[in-house]
Design a protein around this nucleic acid. Structure first.
Lengths: 244, 244
DNA sequence: CGCCCAGTTGAGCGACTTCAAAATATGTGG
DNA sequence: CCACATATTTTGAAGTCGCTCAACTGGGCG
């Protein structure tokens, strides 16, 4: 029996249902051993600020975290929403500093990985290194999909597309059954993710509700017709590399 | 004298003015040795198609290449514009397949690097590996800036922001003096990059011309007042990691 | 109970699109 | 080097999507 099963598994959800088969028990053990601290945070708490050097990356075990950029008027644009199993700012390791802020959306449980430990992994574990690299490129693929969403989709489709992505990510780690999941975002947050005002988000959510595709209430999302929702925004989850 | 100076330097512009000091002569030599082929391509030629597995990555030596995604109606959204010195689809190595198309904009000179060769580098050259990883994350940082551009800026500022980025990238590899550079993009291309119609691009370019900030003609861009242009769109190039 | 934040709704406006046509470059073959 | 064909740029007019501003509703919590 792989000894990973015997320990508290911090990285149990890391790349789960992605390409997990490539992660050997030894690599997993090395990754677990590189964690310096596991801690809990409150909701709406700033974890890292744009520009400052970082020496530690954050892996999300429970809860929701977002990354965002501010314009000069303080208006936010979200660039990512992270769910359990995401290595939120692993890119800070090769980059050395972040070009965006990182903050929790909900109360969360996170694991801290010092970059010194990652140096060790990089030098000794090429397979693990490639997998870590892969995970940062998964984020880049999501960025591209966000660019497409903002550049080519209208308001309803943007929202639909956003929820399709979140649903697919949550399902991969067992937090969605394909129709229901928790998502602690306000309509203002959705606006900051989809590049529109919260007022218009509200109207478009009503439309999605009336078309019986999607319902949002009190931080819970109910997707009544996932296939139709995906059709609406031409959603294809292959960029998430789920299922191999 | 480093022996890199003695050879035809394929990667002379790779991360030039970025963090080049970290790339040792041996690493550089190993990188050069991993190239299987250098070839020229015509303008507007498809290099890689979304979805198909790739076994080789493309480094751009001369010319311009873009990456884009299509919606169901065939409308394109560019997700990146590459200039000489860019490792265009290095992310295809950890990912295994691409989630977007790659095509030349102008006639180009490219170097092909088989992924097998990269396996060798990954196993034996941690510093080089970290630098290659870094370069793919620079692309991700640019993606984030594009998300911000599309989500938070109006039409004029989007165009200004796009040109500010291209100018900064070209200057880093010596292809812009801060005011003039070649850029073989049509107004339709600009529209596909900035998420708007070519008609509106045309009108906004006129506005930028009338405000004496920027001029575009026959594939040549002239920036009359870079500082003002940057102010217009709140542009801060620090995400490009130029100069350090 | 009353406050505050999130959600909801309406009216009017402005930015950008759509559709259409004309003007100007660019490229090609003779 | 010209004539022709094609691509790109430019301009106008009308329509629509999403924004702004403003007010009101409702739920959670001290």
């Amino acid at each position: 029996m792989p000894w990973g099963d015997m320990l508290p598994m911090i990285f149990a959800d890391f790349l789960r249902n992605r390409r997990r088969e490539q992660l050997s028990d030894q690599d997993l053990a090395a990754l677990e051993a590189s964690v310096s601290q596991v801690r809990k945070t409150h909701a709406r708490q700033l974890l890292a600020h744009a520009g400052e050097p970082i020496a530690c990356s954050t892996y999300l075990m429970e809860g929701f975290i977002c990354r965002y950029m501010d314009d000069r008027n303080g208006l936010r644009q979200l660039v990512a929403v992270h769910v359990p199993g995401d290595f939120v700012d692993l890119h800070g390791y090769p980059l050395g500093r972040l070009d965006h802020d990182v903050a929790t959306l909900s109360a969360s449980k996170i694991a801290m990985v010092p970059h010194e430990a990652l140096d060790g992994l990089l030098a000794q574990r090429p397979n693990l290194t490639k997998l870590l690299w892969f995970s940062t490129l998964l984020d880049a693929a999501m960025h591209r999909e966000w660019i497409f969403r903002l550049g080519r989709l209208d308001a309803v489709a943007r929202i639909a597309h956003f929820f399709c992505e979140i649903e697919a990510k949550l399902r991969a780690v067992g937090l969605s059954d394909g129709s229901r999941f928790a998502l602690p975002l306000t309509q203002a947050d959705l606006g900051e993710a989809c590049g529109m005002t919260s007022v218009h988000i509200n109207r478009m959510l009503r439309e999605l509700r009336e078309r019986e595709l999607l319902q949002v209430q009190r931080g819970r999302v109910t997707i009544s017709d996932l296939a139709a929702l995906r059709r609406l925004c031409d959603y294809d989850p292959s960029y998430l590399f789920i299922g191999g």
